[in-house]
Design a protein around this nucleic acid. Structure first.
Length: 751
DNA sequence: ATAGGGTTAG
């Protein structure tokens, strides 16, 4: 067959090849191979683009590699497609190969290449591409420059983005809306609006992409008021919002809890027929959930014709946000049953829901199930599951999650890092927490606060103060949380003077007004050292209403220092603020008990009984050989209970011999006559310690975590055990570690 | 053939 005829045939096949039929492409490819017209760019380029649009990248690259002299069109076709399908690494590889083939990119290819650099957020490579563009002159093109602006914005280099913008000969709508959106995304409201206005001054009307970029940008940087403002402005200027603007503004409306506005937008959605848009529906569900409207949220979900995953996820997190944990779990299981392909967001939401609402074991179980289900946890999942590990001392699970992050290379993420610091500190491994902290290449305020909080929990005030100064030396300003951590560290160590100093300094030197949690810290700081009157006078001078935490801090201090009159004041307030919290009644009745005011004590107990309130069950966790054991006071079902009781008896004999007497106050009021005989009552932390002694090697330290405050009697008993059994014992209660060694405790006597 | 915008998890 003459070459011409063959070419015609090929051309015919290629023209027949629609997006739907790949077989024609393969046929044409075979034809190319058979004939000698392999290097006719017209055909190969067409074929390349067919392959690429079908995402048959293997075939496409095969074809490209078989060309003896691929031209620039062949490369640009494939590069364009790679970028279009987010195959950014392939884009960059091909870009390099172009140079090896002696070809130089033109202004048509660079935008795709730069977009790939944006997608991968690799600043260095992008800068090199930029440099090449400048030296070759290719960068003097508005398309290239716009993509460069976007690239620098994406890499958080606003200054460079602005430089590109400044050097442009002719700016267009795309360039200034990209820059304005960049400033909006960074939260620089003034610059964003300035650039936005400048475009208008030059005679360009913002189009829908410009408006949407601003709304989305403000939304992402937390400038919710500005996001909603832009949305309104857009309408005033006569722009109809499209689906994108709606789904960008709804989260902002939700965060502002602006239900009225939300309902208006919902109405608009219905009117415009946007109700079929997946993103909008998810955003509506999210908005209602943030406004606390669980029924409306569920209704939007009910009305969806074709349920999509985004909406399911929004529903799960919405239920969780509104405290409907069991509902969320039910819905999650239902979706699973309906063979819904749950993704990493679904699982992560569910895990977060459990770990945020005290269902730690469930969270750990879900984390395991998700991996069994073949869904890979990501850098958001890890910080959701780690607190659960910390709460129940599941160090092995925590370490596994740590290893997982190392393998997947997101252990350097600031949120993962902070959660790791927190988890290790909560599991009593402050040195590992410390190592994680110093390993982090970049730290934000959350990391610093986590480290300070860890030291606080371990009563290491000196180290906490050091971190407080280090963070400032490294240019990180403290935030309100930093002061909470710092003050609680000082409070744990009884550094009253210093605590007072930093409390004053907070507003004076740092411009941070004391929040209610800071008042709670300073009250417990003063209360701990017995300065109860001073604490009370601070409460009275507070510029806003003290909450239950503040009064609670005062009440527990009164309990420790046996101050009845102030204790009654605090308790009275607490009974108003949280009438159903049994802890407050118990504290007050314990104060009465310590003063032998049996009548008053009985009165409080009767009130409790009348309200049907029972003491929160105490429980402790201990991890032994990779398994977490939960111990409940008086749990008869524990297999080793008999052994534990034997051991307790043995210990109690020893204690009697060395003259130990239990506290005479509240502990004995709570227990059965028979148990009083044993001196050692059934409190869970004590059970956990003995359980640990029975099940671990001699000399190895024990780490126990308790959900409530450690009991005074247990405190003394564990001190004894630490000496008698020659064990280091760490017990963490609600906010700190008690380190028992050689009959001493790191925080001195019972607190 | 080329550039800019969206939902749900911390």
């Amino acid at each position: 067959m003459p070459v011409l005829r063959q070419a015609e045939k090929l051309s015919h096949i290629l023209n027949k090849t629609t997006a739907a039929s790949l077989s024609h492409a393969h046929q044409a490819h075979a034809h190319l191979l058979k004939t000698g017209i392999y290097n006719v760019p017209r055909y190969t380029t067409k074929l390349l683009s067919l392959y690429a649009n079908h995402q048959c990248f293997y075939d496409a690259e095969n074809l490209l590699n078989s060309l003896s002299r691929p031209d620039i069109f062949a490369f640009s076709t494939l590069i364009y497609s790679y970028t279009k399908f987010n195959e950014f690494k392939r884009t960059l590889r091909l870009f390099c190969e172009m140079f090896y083939n002696g070809l130089f990119p033109d202004a048509h290819i660079l935008p795709s290449v730069i977009k790939a650099c944006s997608g991968l957020s690799i600043l260095e490579i992008g800068k090199q591409v930029h440099g090449f563009g400048l030296t070759s002159g290719v960068a003097l093109d508005s398309f290239v420059e716009s993509s460069l602006i976007h690239f620098y914005v994406k890499c958080n280099e606003l200054v460079d983005a602005h430089k590109v913008y400044d050097n442009m000969v002719e700016r267009d709508m795309v360039s200034w809306s990209a820059l304005a959106a960049g400033y909006a995304r960074k939260g620089d409201v003034l610059s964003a609006k300035k650039v936005f206005e400048e475009g208008k001054k030059r005679g360009f009307e913002p189009n829908s992409v410009s408006w949407n970029g601003m709304i989305a940008g403000f939304n992402q940087s937390g400038c919710f008021v500005d996001a909603v403002f832009m949305f309104r402005e857009m309408h005033l200027r006569g722009f109809e919002s499209d689906g994108t603007s709606i789904s960008s503004v709804l989260p902002a409306i939700g965060d502002l809890r602006d239900l009225k506005m939300g309902i208006q937008v919902h109405g608009y959605v219905i009117k415009m027929g946007f109700g079929v848009d997946k993103c909008i529906v998810s955003a509506l569900i999210d908005m209602y959930s943030k406004c606390g409207c669980a029924p409306e949220m569920s209704q939007v979900f009910e009305e969806i014709d074709l349920v999509d995953l985004g909406a399911c996820n929004a529903l799960i997190s919405g239920l969780s946000r509104n405290g409907l944990i069991d509902e969320a779990l039910k819905v999650f299981k239902e979706f699973q049953g309906q063979r819904m392909e749950l993704n990493v967001v679904s699982w992560t939401s569910m895990i977060a829901c459990c770990s945020q609402h005290g269902k730690d074991i469930e969270a750990l179980e879900l984390f395991r199930s998700m991996q069994v289900a073949g869904v890979k946890p990501n850098s958001v999942t890890i910080p959701c599951v780690l607190p659960a590990c910390g709460n129940v001392a599941a160090l092995t699970h925590g370490k596994a999650a740590h290893c997982f992050s190392l393998r997947r290379e997101f252990s350097d993420d600031v949120y993962v890092g902070s959660a790791l610091i927190d988890m290790y500190a909560n599991c009593g491994r402050i040195q590992i927490a410390r190592r994680c902290f110093y390993r982090l290449p970049v730290r934000n305020v959350v990391c610093w606060n986590a480290m300070m909080g860890g030291y606080a929990m371990h009563g290491m005030a000196k180290e906490a103060i050091e971190i407080f100064y280090q963070m400032q030396q490294s240019g990180q300003k403290p935030d309100p949380v930093s002061f909470t951590s710092l003050l609680s560290a000082l409070s744990q160590s009884g550094l009253t003077e210093e605590g007072h100093h930093y409390f004053e300094s907070m507003s004076r030197d740092y411009g941070i007004e004391a929040r209610v949690e800071h008042y709670a810290c300073i009250v417990s700081l003063l209360g701990r050292s017995g300065k109860l009157e001073e604490a009370y006078s601070i409460i009275r001078k507070m510029p806003f209403e003290p909450d239950a935490c503040v009064w609670g801090a005062l009440l527990s201090s009164c309990r420790v220092h046996h101050n009845m009159s102030l204790g009654e004041v605090a308790a009275k307030k607490l009974f108003e603020l949280e009438p159903h919290n049994p802890g407050n009644y118990i504290l007050l009745s314990n104060i009465y008990a310590s003063k032998a005011k049996w009548n008053e004590m009985d009165k409080i107990r009767n009130i409790m009984r009348g309200m049907g309130l029972r003491k929160n069950p105490g429980c402790s966790w201990i991890e032994i050989k990779n398994k977490v054991h939960m111990l409940l006071a008086g749990d008869k079902s524990l297999p080793q209970m008999a052994q534990i009781m034997n051991k307790l008896n043995e210990l109690s004999m020893e204690m009697k011999k060395s003259g130990y007497l239990p506290h005479t106050d509240f502990v004995l009021q709570d227990v059965e006559e028979q148990e009083k005989e044993h001196i050692l009552c059934g409190h869970s932390e004590k059970l956990a310690v003995v359980f640990g002694i029975l099940n671990t090697n001699e000399g190895s330290p024990l780490r126990v975590i308790k959900n409530l405050r450690i009991c005074g009697d247990c405190h003394a008993v564990i001190k004894f055990i630490s000496r008698f059994e020659k064990r280091e014992i760490y017990v963490r209660d609600t906010n700190r570690f008690h380190h028992f060694k050689d009959g001493e405790c790191s925080c001195g006597d019972y607190w």
